[in-house]
Nucleic acid binder design. Structure first.
Lengths: 124, 124
DNA sequence: GCGGAATTACTATAGGCATCGTAGATCGAC
DNA sequence: GTCGATCTACGATGCCTATAGTAATTCCGC
């Protein structure tokens, strides 16, 4: 099952992933844009309707927590990007990734190491 | 300038990138879904309005060609994904990319080579 | 020149997204 | 118990997306 989000939903999920279960007010504070309180609430409610988050009561307020992990969202988004833009070629994608500005040599080295490890696993 | 596309627009752009300049009928044939002729036309017209494609007359029909290269779209989408889902960490993204099931050892080797070359460039 | 097939132009509709206001419920302080 | 602040519920709006129908135009074959 593909797990996708709209732009604003992704902002909200980002807060939950980063800071953990949060109330509406907390999410609102941590969002990049200054939205009305009810706007944030509405987004959370539609996310709940879609089964992406749930809430527990806490005093008179709700505390929302994610039902979808960042990993799942990441995999879904990546798959979609790979299929729709990069013709299903992970190499092509990587090419663009490393051509992005300021990747430090260190980062690249760590990424290479990551591939090495993966090779050893698959190819004993 | 960020270059983004809706789902259906991306399908259409994919055809133009893959097969080159095409008429409406050609795009329609090559799309994954069976859409009405006028639906495809509408998508192309809105893409043109947004400055993503242009057309030349050819007989009584129009031949549409992309004004945006796959590379630009790829970079934009990748940037967005990186920022919104992977906390700006290319390593985290790569981790997910390689954890996708169907990567062959060969592909991984080629990807590693790619990083090697990049390292040599940056770090003589 | 005319009829039919293909094409474009225009319009429309249903649904989703982003945003927010108002009304009503609830809790804590006094 | 009442008041004010905070919270949720509900509804509404404007815009965008996806899809397609109908009308008007154009070209080609006869």
């Amino acid at each position: 099952m593909e797990v996708t989000f709209t732009d604003r939903e992704l902002d909200v999920m980002g807060v939950l992933w980063e800071y953990g279960p949060s109330t509406v007010a907390e999410v609102r504070e941590r969002l990049p844009d200054r939205l009305a309180y009810t706007t944030v609430l509405t987004v959370l409610r539609t996310l709940e309707e879609k089964g992406r988050v749930a809430h527990k009561e806490e005093g008179k307020a709700y505390r929302y927590y994610p039902l979808v992990e960042r990993e799942q969202a990441g995999k879904s988004a990546l798959r979609r990007l790979l299929r729709k833009v990069f013709r299903g070629s992970p190499e092509l994608l990587l090419t663009h990734l490393v051509s992005e500005k300021d990747l430090t040599a260190d980062e690249i080295r760590r990424m290479r190491k990551l591939l090495d490890e993966r090779l050893k696993e698959a190819d004993p």
